[in-house]
Design a protein around this nucleic acid. Structure first.
Length: 711
DNA sequence: TGTAGAATCGTTTTT
DNA sequence: CGATTCTACA
């Protein structure tokens, strides 16, 4: 097999090289934003293989499975295609894999079902009602709050009492019942072969802790462990890493304490600082040179962090020359903000910045609603990340519930969902049917023996027929097709208002299912890696057309763009009003803002709407976010509308005063900030030039905007 | 017992 | 403003 020899000296700086070449023992890499962290991991994987380590003996834990796949693909390109065989994924996906294998040690079958957050809440709600904790007038926490409390306790490794005291003191008087409910919830999941996200971690931890032979086996299998985004791991995950690496200590964790943004789910950036105590003899390496952003953007980023209460461990610098201060745009309201962004994006596109090199970031998914309308109006295609996932919509959950029953016919949550869809069946009847099915050893077949009343007999009969058809040996996609046939009338009845739109979602689900041959895998992936929901309506979902990115800051982690807009920088929006009560929550908002601004390579725009709609209160006046107030004097410049935005017509004068105009001749070599090096083909007209770029191919550039330089 | 219409409610970020 | 929860009626 041909293996490329890597050039470590040329491709890596000294700190990166040290990280890549230190293969044995514990290593902590503190990697600032844009410091080539991914590159370092990629090279290290390649290096390990070069040293003769087998790919299946390497484990790469990342924050999303997409990130892992991407890194391994890059590593494969770089050196050796076997890199793609390296085990990689999130903690949860690894736990899933391992528990399918070792779960039986804890009394689980291999086909346990993963509950997403919504399922877990449904289960809690069911049990809460069953325990009589839902009587009206009683101020017992709601299902989502309860789920929150339970989850925090597990991920922070604290008792329920501690969590309630710290985060929900107003529910202290309900502590006893909460504890009782928790017990029931745990037992319920065990009895029905269900695991929520937290169970995946807890059970994987238990297997490692309680079964030394498993720990040994896993240690032998994964001899080199790498963990990315370590600042966003929690205490439980840290212990899992500890147990897996116990035998050989070959573990490298990479992260950035100032980019820790998942405290709300138990992550603790101190984890990363405590790593050396967990693994004595840890080698610490810092990557501080930034290869991504211009200096003015980094100055802003550093200034933001300089005002943090906790002092972080590093300071970014770059050798990249030039660049201008980020722009602040004060908008009248949200509509004005949206209009500004749409116009800037159109102008950038004229300059030749492709849409997929532009992103709009915001604190919460709903902050972009207004902008989404504006973009649709102007036919700008976008892809939105964060917010509601496809799998979380009611109609998708309905269909998936049917699939789940095929895998685990005792999944009473799924039964409940499926039964309630039938006309004439409400909660009471559903419960009775479930009690009947529970005792059967083949619930799917037993359905037809249920003594149904005439009001719903027909519906139940149809369902029975569906299940017997589904028994055949079919692919996930074929099964979905059968279910949809059955479900279609239900969809139209239950969600009449927007059923055509929802039907489209089902098509999308089927498209995803197409790639799977195993139902089990399909369902596990749906829970572990939920497909994003909204592709803009402007373009067909599969079109290859370049799209603009809209994303929550959380979902933008680890990514970068040529131009970044951060919108809605008003007090209450960003920082979120939710965080304004507590010092440490505000600190996390600050880190979040830091993450947002460090996504930009060349251009950074910050916008602030002077008024916005607050729920219930209508339009309210807002104050600029403290994060921009702190730095606007020294690190930002205000947007000054240029004449060409005031008048729609471009005058002769405008063109003539532009130094760039009409100056390029065929054959000249030029350089463009995005596309790099190219050669002028010819002028399209007075304002446009056609350039053939070495890597990007042929582009038409607008001379008024393009920062095209002769080289 | 189930459903439809009324009232209320509370609004982050994600595996 | 939208979804969830409650109440009244069939």
């Amino acid at each position: 097999m041909f293996v490329k020899k890597l050039n470590y000296t040329e491709d890596l700086n000294p700190a990166q090289r040290e990280a890549v070449e230190t293969l044995g023992g514990p290593v902590l890499v503190i990697a600032g934003a844009g410091s080539g962290k991914t590159r370092t991991l990629v090279y290290r994987v390649a290096r390990l293989l070069e040293e003769g380590v087998e790919p299946e003996n390497i484990l790469l834990l990342t924050f999303t499975r997409k990130a892992a796949r991407e890194m391994l693909r890059r590593a494969a390109l770089l050196s050796d295609e076997r890199c793609e065989q390296v085990a990689g994924g999130t903690f949860h996906s690894l736990a899933n894999l391992m528990l399918r294998e070792f779960g039986p040690l804890l009394g689980y079958t291999r086909n346990f079902v993963i509950l997403d957050r919504g399922d877990a809440e449904d289960a809690i709600n069911l049990l809460r009602t069953g325990l009589g904790l839902a009587e009206k007038g009683r101020r017992f926490p709601k299902k989502d709050t309860i789920a929150n409390i339970f989850s925090k306790a597990i991920n922070l490794r604290k008792s329920l009492a501690e969590v309630v005291e710290e985060h929900f003191p107003h529910f202290l008087n309900e502590l006893e019942d909460l504890a009782r409910l928790f017990e029931h919830y745990v037992r319920y999941k065990q009895e029905h072969q269900l695991m929520d996200y937290d169970d995946l971690l807890v059970n994987w931890y238990r297997v490692l802790k309680e079964f030394p032979e498993v720990r040994r086996a896993v240690g032998t299998r994964f001899q080199y462990i790498m963990v990315d985004e370590y600042q966003d791991t929690n205490a439980l995950q840290a212990e899992i890493v500890y147990l897996m690496a116990e035998r050989h200590q070959n573990v490298m964790v990479v992260g950035d304490d100032s980019q820790s943004i998942y405290a709300f789910r138990g992550a603790n950036f101190r984890n990363i600082l405590e790593f050396p105590q967990l693994f004595p003899g840890t080698k610490i390496i810092k990557l501080e040179e930034n290869y991504r952003s211009t200096q003015p953007i980094l100055d802003l980023a550093n200034a933001v962090m300089a005002r943090a209460k906790e002092k972080y461990t590093k300071c970014l610098f770059t050798r990249k020359q030039g660049g201008e201060k980020p722009i602040l745009y004060k908008a009248k309201d949200e509509a004005d903000q949206s209009r500004f962004i749409a116009e800037r994006i159109l102008a950038l596109r004229e300059e030749g910045v492709p849409l997929n090199e532009i992103a709009v970031l915001f604190r919460s998914a709903f902050h972009s609603f207004d902008l989404e309308l504006e973009l649709a109006k102007r036919n700008l295609p976008f892809l939105k990340y964060g917010g509601l996932k496809l799998i979380e919509t009611a109609h998708i959950k309905d269909v998936v519930a049917h699939l789940r029953l095929l895998l685990n016919p005792y999944d009473m949550l799924a039964w409940n969902r499926v039964l309630l869809l039938i006309e004439g069946i409400g909660p009471k009847t559903s419960r009775r049917i479930m009690d009947f099915l529970r005792t059967s050893n083949d619930p799917l077949a037993a359905l037809k023996e249920y003594p149904s009343r005439p009001s719903f007999a027909k519906g139940l009969q149809k369902l029975t027929k569906l299940f017997s058809a589904l028994r055949a040996d079919l692919s996930p996609e074929e099964r979905l097709l059968l279910i949809e046939e059955y479900y279609d009338p239900i969809l139209t009845r239950v969600y009449y208002d927007d059923h055509p739109k929802r039907a489209k979602d089902l098509d999308q689900l089927r498209a995803i299912a197409h790639k799977y041959s195993s139902l089990e895998e399909f369902l596990a992936d749906l829970a572990l890696e939920p497909p994003e929901a909204s592709v803009s309506e402007v373009t067909p979902p599969d079109s290859d057309e370049e799209k603009l990115t809209l994303s929550t800051v959380h979902s933008a982690k680890g990514l970068e763009w040529h131009t970044v807009f951060v919108i809605s920088l008003a007090e209450g929006r960003f920082p979120s009003s939710y965080a304004m009560g507590r010092q440490e929550d505000l600190e996390e908002e600050r880190r979040l803002f830091y993450v947002a601004v460090t996504r930009a390579r060349e251009n950074l725009f910050l916008t602030f709407p002077a008024t916005y709609y607050a729920p219930g209160e209508g339009r309210i006046f807002s104050k600029p976010s403290r994060f921009i107030e702190e730095v606007r004097q020294d690190y930002l410049r205000n947007w000054v509308p240029s004449p060409r935005f005031l008048s729609l017509e471009t005058t002769e004068e405008d063109i003539e005063t532009k130094p760039n105009s009409s100056r390029f001749r065929p054959g000249e070599l030029v350089w463009h900030p995005v596309f790099g090096e190219g050669q002028v083909k010819h002028m399209a007209d007075n304002e446009k030039v056609i350039v053939k770029f070495v890597s990007a191919g042929e582009k038409t550039l607008h001379l008024k905007y393009a920062r095209l330089e002769r080289i």
